[in-house]
C-alpha cells in the first residue's frame, strides 16, 4: 500500500507544498464563487450614494440599514411573511402526504416501477407548460392571489420530490426492524410511529428542508398566480425592476432577507446535501 502511495503522482499531489497550492486554489475558487453573494450583501447595506458611486464602492463606510427599514415601513417584508406561510404550510402537507405514499412504494412496491416513475416524472414537467390550465382553474375557484391556491399548487409541485426522496430513506430502514416491532406487539401504525418515523427522522428533516427551499425559491407559479395580496419574495424582487428606474437597494435588501433562511437551512443539512440535490442518486 505505502509503495503505491510513494509512486503515486496525482494531479493535485499529497506533499506539503502541493497541499499549500491546493489550499490556495481552493481559496481562490471560494472567493470567485462567494464574491457575488458578498456584493449582494454589501449593496443592501450601502447608502444611496454608495450604490450609485463610480467607481463602485467595495466596502461601505458604514453598515446602513436604511433600506431594510424602508422595506419594513412600506410593508414590503410582507412578501417574506407570505413566502414563509406558503412554503411552511405546503411543506408540512406535502411531507405528510408524500411520506405516506413513499411508505407504500418502499414497502409494498405499490404499482410497481411504473407508478414510481410516473410520480417523479410529474416533477420534470416545466411549470410553464401546466400553469395556464392551473391559472384558469384558480380563476374558477377564486384562488388567484390567495394563500390556499399557491399552497395547494406547491404541495402538488413538491409531492413527487418528497415521495421520491422518502421512498429512498424508508428503503434504507431494514424491513426486519419493522417486522420485529410487529411481532413485539405493535400494530402497523404503532410500528410506523415508534420505529419507522424515529429511524427516518433525519431523512424526513432533510427532505422537509429541501421541500421548503424549493417552495421558498419558486418563481414562475408565484408570478402568474399572485397579484398583490400574497406576493412571494422572488416576485416582489422582480417588481423593483422598473421601466425607468431600478431600485437596486431594495432588490439587494429583499434578496438578502430571502436568502438568509436558506443559508441557515443549508447549514443544518451538511450530511444530506448531496442526496437531496441529486434526488437520491448519490447517498453521500
Amino acid at each position: 500500500m505505502s509503495d503505491a502511495a510513494i509512486h503515486r503522482k496525482p494531479l493535485f499531489g499529497r506533499t506539503r507544498r502541493r497541499m499549500t497550492a491546493r489550499f490556495a486554489v481552493a481559496v481562490l475558487i471560494l472567493i470567485i464563487f462567494l464574491f457575488p453573494v458578498y456584493w449582494l450583501f454589501i449593496t443592501s447595506l450601502k447608502s444611496a450614494a454608495e450604490i450609485f458611486a463610480r467607481p463602485p464602492v467595495w466596502y461601505p463606510a458604514e453598515f446602513n440599514l436604511r433600506t431594510f427599514a424602508v422595506l419594513f415601513k412600506d410593508g414590503d417584508v410582507w412578501a417574506i411573511y407570505n413566502s414563509l406561510i406558503i412554503a411552511s404550510v405546503s411543506t408540512v402537507v406535502a411531507m405528510v402526504l408524500g411520506t405516506a405514499a413513499a411508505y407504500s412504494l418502499a414497502r409494498f412496491k405499490t404499482g410497481g416501477q411504473n407508478l414510481a416513475i410516473w410520480i417523479i416524472s410529474q416533477r420534470m414537467i416545466p411549470p410553464i407548460v401546466i400553469v395556464f390550465p392551473v391559472f384558469l382553474m384558480f380563476v374558477w375557484f377564486g384562488w388567484i392571489d390567495s394563500y390556499v391556491g399557491l399552497i395547494l399548487l406547491y404541495i402538488a409541485f413538491n409531492l413527487p420530490y418528497v415521495i421520491w426522496m422518502m421512498r429512498g430513506y424508508i428503503e434504507d430502514i431494514p424491513i426486519e426492524v419493522e417486522e420485529s416491532a410487529l411481532t413485539d406487539g405493535c400494530s402497523r401504525w404503532q410500528a410506523l410511529r415508534k420505529i419507522v418515523f424515529p429511524m427516518a427522522r433525519t431523512g424526513i428533516f432533510a427532505t422537509a428542508v429541501f421541500t421548503f427551499i424549493f417552495a421558498w425559491n419558486e418563481f414562475v407559479f408565484a408570478m402568474i398566480l399572485t397579484r398583490t395580496e400574497v406576493l412571494t419574495f422572488p416576485v416582489l424582487v422582480t417588481h423593483y425592476y422598473g421601466a425607468q428606474s431600478t431600485f437596486w437597494a431594495k432588490i439587494a435588501a429583499l434578496s438578502v432577507l430571502g436568502t438568509l433562511p436558506v443559508f441557515f437551512a443549508v447549514a443544518t443539512l451538511q450530511r444530506f446535501l448531496v442526496r437531496g440535490i441529486s434526488m437520491g442518486a448519490v447517498k453521500g
Partner: peptide, 17 residues
C-alpha cells in the same frame, strides 16, 4: 458548505445579483 451557497439561493436572487 460555503461553495454550495449559489446553488440553493433563489434563481431570481442569483439573476438579480
Amino acid at each position: 458548505a460555503l461553495l454550495i451557497i449559489p446553488t440553493v439561493i433563489s434563481p431570481i436572487v442569483a439573476g438579480s445579483t
